[in-house]
């Protein structure tokens, strides 16, 4: 495992922790898209079907369990927790799951490395992860005041994607036959979706003003 991959995993973990910190301590999920969180839960469910059959390392298994557990915990908090759910911005979080899930599933059926069930689900999870942030970005655009923790959550997620691209470039040059078009292209699409957010995030940071995305 190289430094880019490890840093990417750590920023991914940080994003989850920042979100749980906000929900658990402030008891608020204002500005957080339930749709995006549900899509992430589905992404991890589809991707980690091999969690018991394919052992890679203790590190991998523990991280998989953390991502699975935390994603379902966050969804539970927003839907069921009696205080947290009151701060959920239902009116503005209107993105439809099916518009993302269905095309990703069809694409996974058509374009995959091997047409076995687990392989298709794995490919589906890659495509879905690439676009799962969209409801969150739409919600940020509609939110007038984005609080620091929400901004940091999206920032860490974007950093995780950017570091994974560095990881793939590194692996391409250091490992024999390391070519993964499906992973790379969906990963690149996913990272590009953050470009706009990063632009405004750094601007607000540089000018020391509150983060706000133009409608």
């Amino acid at each position: 495992m190289n430094i880019f991959r490890f840093s990417g995993d750590m920023t991914h973990l940080m994003s989850v922790l920042v979100l749980l910190l906000k929900i658990h301590t402030i008891k608020s999920c204002a500005g957080i898209s339930l749709k995006t969180q549900e899509l992430y839960a589905l992404v991890f469910l589809a991707r980690y079907l091999d969690i018991v059959t394919n052992f890679i390392s203790l590190y991998n298994t523990i991280m998989k369990l953390i991502f699975l557990g935390s994603s379902f915990m966050i969804v539970w908090y927003i839907r069921r927790h009696r205080i947290v759910r009151r701060s959920y911005d239902k009116e503005h979080d209107t993105f439809r799951h099916l518009f993302l899930v269905l095309p990703c599933f069809i694409l996974a059926l058509l374009i995959n490395e091997r047409s076995a069930f687990k392989e298709i689900m794995w490919t589906f999870s890659l495509y879905l992860e690439a676009v799962a942030i969209l409801p969150q970005l739409v919600l940020l655009q509609r939110t007038k005041n984005i609080d620091n923790l929400t901004g940091q959550y999206v920032f860490f997620l974007g950093a995780y994607r950017a570091l994974y691209i560095c990881n793939w470039i590194y692996r391409y040059f250091t490992e024999p036959h390391y070519v993964h078009w499906i992973t790379w292209i969906s990963g690149l699409v996913q990272t590009l979706l953050y470009a706009d957010f990063f632009y405004y995030y750094f601007n607000s940071w540089k000018n020391n003003v509150k983060l706000q995305l133009p409608a």
Partner: peptide
């Protein structure tokens, strides 16, 4: 043949 080492990523 296919390489499956992308599966060792999260």
């Amino acid at each position: 043949c296919f390489q499956y080492n992308a599966k060792d990523e999260l």
